[in-house]
Design a protein around this nucleic acid. Sequence first.
DNA 1: TTGTACGCGTTATCAG
DNA 2: CTGATAACGCGTACAA
Lengths: 340, 340
Amino acid sequence: MTKKRTIYTIADELNLAPGTISKVINKTGNVSDLTRERVLAYIKEVGYVPASSARMLKSKRTYTVGIVFTEESDVGLEHSFFSSILQHFKTYVEKEGYELSFIVKKLGKHELSYYEWCINKRVDGVYLVVGNYTDQGLYELVKSGIPCVSTDMLLPGMHTVISDNDQGIRITLEYIKNHLKKQRVSMISGPISSKAFNERLVAYQNYVSKLSLTSDLNSVVFAESFGFTSGYNAVKKLLSQMNEKPEVILVASDDIALGALKGLRDMDLNVPEDIQVIGFDDIAFAKHFTPSLTTIAQDRKLLGETAAKLLIQLMENPDQEVDEVVKLPVELIIRDSTKV
Amino acid sequence: MTKKRTIYTIADELNLAPGTISKVINKTGNVSDLTRERVLAYIKEVGYVPASSARMLKSKRTYTVGIVFTEESDVGLEHSFFSSILQHFKTYVEKEGYELSFIVKKLGKHELSYYEWCINKRVDGVYLVVGNYTDQGLYELVKSGIPCVSTDMLLPGMHTVISDNDQGIRITLEYIKNHLKKQRVSMISGPISSKAFNERLVAYQNYVSKLSLTSDLNSVVFAESFGFTSGYNAVKKLLSQMNEKPEVILVASDDIALGALKGLRDMDLNVPEDIQVIGFDDIAFAKHFTPSLTTIAQDRKLLGETAAKLLIQLMENPDQEVDEVVKLPVELIIRDSTKV
DNA sequence: TTGTACGCGTTATCAG
DNA sequence: CTGATAACGCGTACAA
């Protein structure tokens, strides 16, 4: 049973003063090389780490980043895409010595806004993994001056790391036209409460016209939600409202696209022979499904790590200017749901 | 911009003493109803919450539970099954006023054992979501007296919430024999480094013999890992080593089973006509795959919530005796990968 | 019923 | 270069 150590007990055991121990830990003030070595060695030997609560109380830094992971639509950590980004973010910031603390509006009997929780916990920064941008509480946070970074969500004044949705749609439509030699395309969008879905839709409308593809832009179907089932329903709705079926369907996310794939199968349409499908995200199952899904891959590791890097910079060098939005390239992964 | 408040500023603004504020917040000592109401109202109005770090430093309770989520095999939060359990656990404990803190061995430059981190952070309890039971650090934790609960992992002396693997295998084999009227079965197990996989294997061997099913028990194939690909490989290996193919394959987890399903398809075997497959877990995609997967469903919500409830009891009533292991019932979900 | 003073483990300042 | 000492914000005896 390791006994509880404080800088006092350490100082005692080493015949030094508590303050000295603190100095070597924080590399502050002047300490002779000899004592520094001695302290460092002893600390390592007995496995001492400064009690975080005391350190947090005294200094302004808590080495904690608040995580806002919207609880609406009850997905939370189960959402494969965002939990993956969060995992990569977590790994990166932990390497840099920061830990995570979930910011929830309600904890026990206490109910506060995001901002109030953040000052209460004295977090050094906040990472908005995924949130609803109609939530007023977020604006309060962003304007508060606490360093904030988000993924997937553009908010005025907020630093954001996001995949280049425009580029993804562009290269995909170019691929459809120049490589697959197809002309008639349709889109299934996700709920536009998500900024990313909105961007993809706008890009689609833009490049369909620029590339002179054939698409009834009014026929875009909006999946009612984020999941498999909504894709299943959406594709049925899409085909029922068109007189001539499209050659290629572009779907705003893989979850939805896989549902669409199943919907097509149930309508006795073969993919890719009768109709082709392209998704967005490259979730794990996109590769495993039958047929495997051609999709625009977002680099989740890069998204999480870039967000981490950006936030740490904001926290540690607050005065240094950085770009407000960082766009990350995406890549079209060709699989079996498309063919020439 | 909300200004920083302490019990001192509050006391000032209300013409009271700091101690009084503390008393009403903690319902300790005697305070007149009038002042209590007044303080409570004011606190709510300005959105004050005691700075957690100061409170943690002073009192023994931190209202924090440490989360051990093994980082080996790099799955982490992306693992759909465990992240789902964790999500339900999180929701429950947050309702009770506790928050989560991930326990990692390495944070920045500091490297400690799980136990050392726990005393350093003064967590009130620990939840081992998933861990490798060969890790010696876990035993140190369990023996330390810090309240601990785990899922999926039986450790001597540790409180565990686990699905009834024995029951699951039993009802499934009974279903195969009495309802599907099949006789020849095989099993694909996961790596037995997982206690749960081990239990399922033992139960399988037990009930195959009790029910007089036909199975070459030496032919059990062990998937080399937890994922889709290992299932794909395992089923190929299984069939290559048998002269007469089994009628039903029982697979230790859905991730592996879905890979097996794809492997069978690639070998031109139709499921369920040529061969039937049953999984374990009921992950989200089990229902969406083609064919949809018959599987033994674990109740992830119940697992997470039961673990939460148990841990809270351990933390708040340390002296009260509770059962060391809580077994939760499972349910066989019939889908398209089996048929009569 | 309310106020006071001390301790929790650090960090920072200022003497020695 | 090193050692004492005062905050940090809160909880809690104990005194008023």
